[in-house]
Design a binder for these strands. Structure first.
Length: 264
DNA sequence: TTGATTGTTACCGG
DNA sequence: TCCGGTAACAATCA
């Protein structure tokens, strides 16, 4: 199951794995679906991540756009690869490894204009150097919507998902129901900095980590996933021990400590 | 077999 | 217009 930050790992790692790629795109969407089979003869110039989106830029201006959604998964095999498991949408074969993609929300071949449309509707991504946090601040400051909802809106900040939302707000002691226009500039600055740090850490270790690593006894790899969180799916608050409340916001469960995270 | 899920979009009613 | 709620879609695992 994908986490928002993992897409940035793929952008970084896959380029090496499929340097001399051969792509087999089995059921693409988009206006250039018919043309998709030609992509394996084109040069892959670069792989780019923006928010939770992945773009494979090919010579000739065609771009393969992938969004993993909830279920999308990349599997990496040694060559020669096993037969495709399930509905493999893209198989990318490099010199030594083969990467299969299953279950993506989006797998389409698009052109530069469509690519630009997607970038334009994404907010700043804390993992990108070109991110402008001020764009996010303006949207949040102007909104009466709860911050728990705003953090899930990819047009405000791109890349934060359901786990990071609960975790970041708990670390900042901000209740998810706090309206955006009640968030102060210093609070927003901390939020942006924290999002950047946590997402970067997530990319580094390929896990979502929001606890203090100094308190960890075992290695990160050997620690069960849920022990790397603070409040997500937890019964009790790591700070005060009180009961964690859970409720739906943006159709997803959010977790918060009513004592530590004051409402405004 | 059922339910839950680290996501997004479209649509509808108030 | 804005907001919240709901459904649809993808695939896997416990």
């Amino acid at each position: 199951m994908p986490e928002g930050h993992t897409i940035h790992r793929f952008a970084r790692d896959q380029a090496k794995l499929i340097a001399q790629q051969k792509l087999h795109i089995t059921s693409p969407q988009g206006r250039f679906a018919d043309e998709a089979k030609l992509i394996d003869r084109r040069k892959l110039n670069r792989i780019e991540a923006a928010g939770k989106h992945l773009f494979y830029h090919f010579s000739g201006g065609r771009i393969l756009h992938v969004h993993l959604g909830l279920f999308g998964k990349f599997r990496v095999h040694e060559n020669p690869p096993p037969p495709p498991r399930g509905a493999v949408r893209v198989r990318m074969t490099g010199k030594e490894k083969t990467i299969d993609l299953n279950g993506p929300n989006t797998c389409e071949v698009i052109d530069r204009a469509e690519y630009q449309d997607i970038l334009d509707r994404l907010g700043p991504d804390p993992l990108r150097k070109d991110a402008d946090p001020d764009r996010a601040w303006k949207r949040i400051h102007a909104s009466k919507q709860p911050i728990g909802l705003l953090l899930m809106d990819q047009s405000i900040i791109a890349g934060i998902g359901n786990i990071y939302r609960s975790e970041i707000l708990h670390l900042l002691r901000i209740h998810p129901r706090t309206p955006g226009n009640e968030i102060t500039k210093p609070q927003f600055n901390k939020l942006w900095k924290l999002a950047k740090e946590l997402l970067t850490l997530g990319v580094k270790h390929n896990r979502i980590i929001t606890i203090d690593l100094k308190t960890l006894k075992k290695s990160i790899e050997k620690t069960p996933r849920r022990k790397l969180f603070r409040v997500f799916k937890k019964p009790n608050c790591p700070s005060c021990g009180g009961e964690i409340e859970r409720f739906k916001m943006a159709s997803r469960k959010v977790f918060a400590c009513p004592a530590c995270q004051s409402s405004s």
